[in-house]
């Protein structure tokens, strides 16, 4: 047999074949791996894109926060403006006498001359007229009264005090004696303005009218309740 002589040759051939097989198998696996993976150029491209997108993202984020800030400021400004408007409206309603008000003031009570106890009729034939109430209101206004009412009827700019025999109309509502006139203001000033010698109270008492004045630390006046609407008067728009 020649075989033993050639055996080492065959063995080394087999060994190299083993190495070749290993190499081929490795190469197979690596190639498959490459196909599964992402090509280097593509990866680089994607990385570049990613970096660009990240830059964009941070830029957009900054923009969003900036816009949020502006929005915040705008809403805060709007809230402030709304509050200012509401304050203005409340002030206007207060000045117009549309809301109930409270504060220190005086109560002036006027009543017609009393009946005499022996049934001889009234002590005086005088009865309180609209002019008397108007004069009292006028005097109190002059003394700095900020809010006035007669028998629960708030005196506002549109209020009339009219003789509609045998009643007096205030705000188109009949009021009857005794007349309670409430005035909010500095109580002492209001009182002294009426009680000044030779003044209104003295004059009314001379006529036989019962007048009493009481200061209060706290009075509450109702608001004007009738609808207030101008049908003819329109505001003049300034160009």
């Amino acid at each position: 047999m020649k075989l033993p002589a050639k055996l080492p040759a065959y063995l080394s051939l087999a060994l190299v074949a083993v190495v070749l097989g290993i190499l081929i198998a490795f190469q197979f696996r690596v190639t498959r791996h490459i196909e599964q993976g992402v090509p280097a150029g593509r990866a680089q491209e994607l990385a570049l894109e990613l970096r660009q997108l990240e830059k964009d993202k941070s830029k957009l984020k900054a923009e969003a926060s900036d816009l949020n800030l502006k929005l915040d400021r705008a809403t805060r400004g709007q809230a402030e403006a709304e509050k200012a408007l509401e304050d203005e409206l409340a002030k206007a309603r207060l000045l117009a006498g549309l809301v109930p008000v409270t504060g220190p003031g005086i109560e002036v009570t006027l009543d017609n001359p009393p009946q005499q106890p022996d049934g001889k009729g009234p002590a005086s034939l005088y009865t309180i007229r609209d002019e008397d109430l108007l004069r009292v209101i006028n005097e109190l206004r002059g003394a700095g009264a900020e809010a006035l009412s007669i028998n629960g009827q708030r005196i506002v700019a549109q209020t009339e005090i009219r003789w509609a025999a045998p009643f007096i109309n205030v705000n188109l509502t009949r009021v009857v004696p005794p007349y309670h006139i409430l005035a909010i203001g500095e109580p002492e000033n209001l009182k002294s303005a009426l009680e000044i010698p030779g003044g209104l109270v003295e004059y009314l008492r001379d006529l036989g009218v019962q007048v009493s004045i009481r200061p209060y630390e706290r009075l509450t006046l109702p608001g004007y309740t009738r609808p207030m609407e101008f049908r003819y008067a329109k505001p003049v728009l300034k160009g």
């Binding site: 075989l3 070749l20 197979f28 696996r29």
Partner: peptide, 29 residues
């Protein structure tokens, strides 16, 4: 015998290569 030995070696090598849990980096492909 030589050819058979070579073929057997090749098959053995392929089996070995497929079973070695080692993946060479792409760079060395």
């Amino acid at each position: 015998l030589g050819i058979w030995l070579a073929v057997a070696g090749l098959v053995l090598g392929v089996l070995l290569g497929l079973n070695i849990p080692l993946v060479l980096p792409q760079v060395y492909a």
